[in-house]
């Protein structure tokens, strides 16, 4: 029971911090909306229909905005040495990691919802017959993404290169998520039956589980001094 309490304490701390500053949510949200504006000018809708490439746009926005937001997790705390205090507390490292994953997931998923809403308006997207399946695919994909990005966010914030290193480390590893996530999303946007996406969802879940276990097991080696 104490483990869950500790987990909740970490999540609460991170979300409260975000609620007070709104720093990351504002930058990620603004970034996502502006990417949508640039996408609009970068595609000629007389040649390609936005509906056809929307899934790629959504997933790439998720990845870029997510890397930006998650990369800041540890930088913010490192700035005034607050993370040292967190490390001194008797919280097990895996609870710390999972707590960070949950709070990052909440942020990233809020941005995903924002992207869906804004892109839907910008590009007149039709989200098909199974909007809940679409939300599920994006949720499981975002979870896998956050699980990896949180671990490597801790790694890159410990290096001299800082968050600029994060994309180099995670992009190669994100290929399974992008493959299954984007294809599942594009099938749903094309109005295909739900049965065609179940396999994608399973693979996304496998990816997220592997990432979570690896992160929970390895996080302590990253943060220890």
């Amino acid at each position: 029971m104490t483990y869950l309490r500790q987990l909740r304490a970490v999540i609460r701390k991170d979300l409260l911090q975000e609620l007070r500053t709104k720093q990351r949510l504002a930058t990620m949200g603004g970034f996502a909306v502006l990417v949508g504006v640039l996408f609009n000018y970068s595609i000629d809708q007389a040649i390609v229909a936005a509906q056809d490439i929307a899934s790629g746009l959504i997933w790439m926005t998720l990845v870029f905005a997510g890397v930006m937001g998650v990369g800041r997790t540890f930088e913010l705390e490192a700035e005034d040495g607050a993370f040292q205090g967190v490390l001194l507390s008797p919280i097990p490292r895996d609870a710390l990691y999972l707590g960070k994953v949950v709070s990052n997931f909440v942020l990233v998923y809020l941005v995903v919802l924002l992207v869906l809403a804004v892109f839907g308006v910008f590009f007149q997207l039709d989200y098909g017959n199974h909007p809940f399946m679409l939300l599920a695919v994006l949720a499981v994909g975002a979870l896998g993404f956050v699980a990896l990005a949180t671990l490597f966010g801790a790694v890159s914030s410990g290096t001299a290169l800082g968050e600029t290193l994060l994309p180099i480390l995670v992009f190669p590893l994100l290929v399974p998520m992008v493959v299954y996530g984007a294809s599942g999303t594009s099938r749903l946007l094309a109005g295909r039956p739900i049965a065609e996406v179940e396999g994608n969802l399973r693979m996304l879940a496998a990816f997220a589980l592997v990432a979570l276990f690896a992160g929970a097991g390895l996080f302590r080696f990253v943060v220890e001094d």
Binding site: P176, V179, Y180, M203, V210, A214, F221
Partner: peptide, 24 residues
């Protein structure tokens, strides 16, 4: 330690990458 983490996560992810690029 950081490099070791990269190595281990890479090795865990490679089978998934392989399956996904085959499927793609």
């Amino acid at each position: 330690r950081f490099a070791a983490v990269v190595g281990i996560v890479g090795a865990l992810d490679i089978p998934l990458i392989h399956v996904s690029v085959l499927w793609f």
